[in-house]
Nucleic acid binder design. Sequence first.
DNA 1: AATTCTTCATAAGATGAAGTTATCGTAACA
DNA 2: TGTTACGATAACTTCATCTTATGAAGAATT
Lengths: 296, 296
Amino acid sequence: MKNLTLKQLRYFEALARHGHFGRAADACSISQPALSVQIKELEESLGTPLFERSPRHVRLTSFGESFAGRARTILQSVDELGEMARAARGRLYGRLRIGVIPTIAPYLLPKLISHLDEAHPELDVHIRETVTPRLIDELSDGQIDVAIVALPVSEPWMTEVPLFDESMVLVRHESQAELPVPSPDALRAMRLLLLEEGHCFRDQALSFCNIQTAVPREGLDGSSLSTLVQMVGAGIGVTLIPEMAIPVEGRAAPVCVDRFTGKEPSRTVGMIWRKTNPLAHQFDALCDIVRKSGQL
Amino acid sequence: MKNLTLKQLRYFEALARHGHFGRAADACSISQPALSVQIKELEESLGTPLFERSPRHVRLTSFGESFAGRARTILQSVDELGEMARAARGRLYGRLRIGVIPTIAPYLLPKLISHLDEAHPELDVHIRETVTPRLIDELSDGQIDVAIVALPVSEPWMTEVPLFDESMVLVRHESQAELPVPSPDALRAMRLLLLEEGHCFRDQALSFCNIQTAVPREGLDGSSLSTLVQMVGAGIGVTLIPEMAIPVEGRAAPVCVDRFTGKEPSRTVGMIWRKTNPLAHQFDALCDIVRKSGQL
DNA sequence: AATTCTTCATAAGATGAAGTTATCGTAACA
DNA sequence: TGTTACGATAACTTCATCTTATGAAGAATT
């Protein structure tokens, strides 16, 4: 006993509508015998007749009528499926899960989300904020689609696309505004407040100052840039923040912000995703949106 | 660009569930390449990928997930369609439209409907009560499925099945109970009340008395047997009714009921339906139920 | 009553879709 | 650096489906 096919349902629907094999076959762009055979096979596979044939009319049986109702619903759902696919074709669709590291998230997301909302109003954006290694794990097992981090991450199974470079700037207590900007080496001698272990921004700051990361440091690590800046405002030390954070953090405490002279320290912000993700092309478009959001 | 098939949806569902081409193919009882090809064609026909393939996992894309939801619904509806067919296979199903002539309906239907309810509780029985020629018309253009009438009707495109024979009996005013039962010829001289034009029972009565149907008669035709019997009860004349009507009409007025002696007049009650109706076999079973209901 | 028309069913052959086995390429793993 | 696991691809086979041609049967026509 063979199986029901969508084709048969389509043919059936046409015949139910036209009540005439020839015209229904025309409507389906097939020959009349082809339709006859398919209807016959449909009836056989159901084990019960759908039509009453007489030389004059072709009429649905009572069962045929119930069948027609449901068949139409099904065909419609299938067509909607096609519609849905057409709508989704080649664009971001449905749920998009973005991971962002904490030294970027608060400064980038407000703009990014409003831009995304504008470009893809139907998109369901989820945000995950955590440190790079964890983002990479979650990327790896499919919990998120893309991540915005500091490059490089150098995972061979990932695509990484640079978005923009960004300087790191010095934050001192406002009382020190007149003092000259210290060199990296001078900085090493100062009380430099850093994010806790795990944040890549901490490592970048340390490497700028040529400090061995292995050496244990005094217990003054903050859990967010915001915390660090507040501590600087309280006169406890100095810290580094990315340019992006200036508009927010530079006003939030009695501090002054200065660029370094000479070779400025910087980080590259970029987006990463699984190479195997078939939405790669759409992600390129996403990069453009993120870039726009990252501009001050 | 080819068309979506149910097969593809089934394969897709399996792959979404197993996340593994080999195992999904097993589940579908086909080879892995066959599955690969079908999934590929499905994705191509949709114009957008459904899965992200990596050597480790096969994962649904975000679009794939929405697609899977709807696909499952569709597959389920299709299976229900099969279920429905299996339930309906070879039995009366859904709506059954029965036509009955007025000289049978009130005496047969109460029993018939309760028997039908018992045998086919899910059956949706519709009743149409009118005279034979009209029933034949309605049968012809599919407004009813079967009709219960007096045979023969002799339409070549119909099947007619006799159900039972039934005598016609004489109804007189109770004051005449002691008088002998008149012969047909004697009857002709009496005031014989008949149904109005169009009822076959009228013609049967006339032919029993050898009265020319063409001859116009006094304007005393009733629109139902019940009316006729009430008139007899009022002493206006005599009438004939079928046996079946005795239990109801014999008690409803001051009348007496007598069988004719010698050759009793009778009619054959039978069921008719379009020869082309594929439910013919089920209708035979229906005949049995009607026969049972017709027994006193 | 014979004939023609209409319409659906059936048959035979052609075409196309879908399945099979065999094999390859690639990334992960030891 | 082989080895393994897995999906993609290719060549071929099988089966489903379509087309054209034809048959059968009732309705309409003459």
